[in-house]
């Protein structure tokens, strides 16, 4: 075995330094990644598992990350791929309710439960509890929920969500639109039960 040249040694030191920096930045983002991951799956335990699998893979394939691009999106892409690999597609409910209410449906339903003719929107919103929102989101079918979670909770753009899920932007938009309506429909049913 030959001694590494000093140029080679310098290069290796540089790679090692990049790797440390990558790992630190990825860990720095773990709170934010967890917030999204937690809503992509049904339980905290699943989210913890998924986070560990995702970070293990990210640390292994760190050189595939292109510096300067959105690291949080890159981590979530790994995470959502793993989540899909876990066979959750199998559990997808095949028959989705064909009937969908419009965007105003939730507001109109909630408003109707308040005696006032013309209540403030804050009072309408007060009809919803935190629990009902958590439960309702968990009931949205996966394909739609993934998009709603990435855009509305992770605050990713349509284009970023499309990259993370590896689907066309048009599909992101239609799933988002539909997913939000489904969410509001479930919320309305819970709040006005």
């Amino acid at each position: 075995m030959t001694e590494p040249t000093s140029a080679e040694a310098r290069r290796l030191a540089e790679v090692a330094r990049d790797r440390v920096r990558f790992e630190e930045e990825a860990l720095e983002l773990s709170d934010q990644v967890y917030r999204v991951a937690r809503r992509l799956v049904g339980s905290r335990e699943e989210a913890e598992d998924l986070m560990q699998d995702a970070y293990a893979r990210a640390f292994r394939s760190w050189q595939q990350y292109q510096p300067g691009t959105n690291l949080r999106a890159w981590l979530l892409r790994i995470l959502t791929n793993l989540n899909i690999d876990r066979g959750r597609r199998v559990q997808r409910s095949p028959d989705l309710q064909p009937l969908e209410e419009g965007d105003y449906y939730l507001y109109n339903r909630l408003e109707s439960t308040i005696g006032d003719e013309n209540p403030d929107e804050e009072r309408v919103l007060d009809r919803l509890s935190q629990n009902s929102i958590v439960e309702a989101l968990a009931e949205v079918p996966h394909d739609f929920r993934d998009v709603v979670v990435l855009v509305d909770i992770g605050e990713f753009s349509y284009a970023e969500a499309a990259q993370i899920l590896d689907i066309p932007v048009g599909t992101v938009m239609s799933r988002l639109h539909r997913g939000r309506r489904i969410l509001k429909q479930i919320l309305a049913d819970k709040a006005v039960a």
């Binding site: 917030r35 809503r39 905290r44 919103l125 919803l128 929102i133 989101l137 509305d152 909770i153």
Partner: peptide, 8 residues
């Protein structure tokens, strides 16, 4: 409200 409610 949704963003805050599901924050964990």
């Amino acid at each position: 409200f949704v963003r805050v409610a599901v924050d964990e």
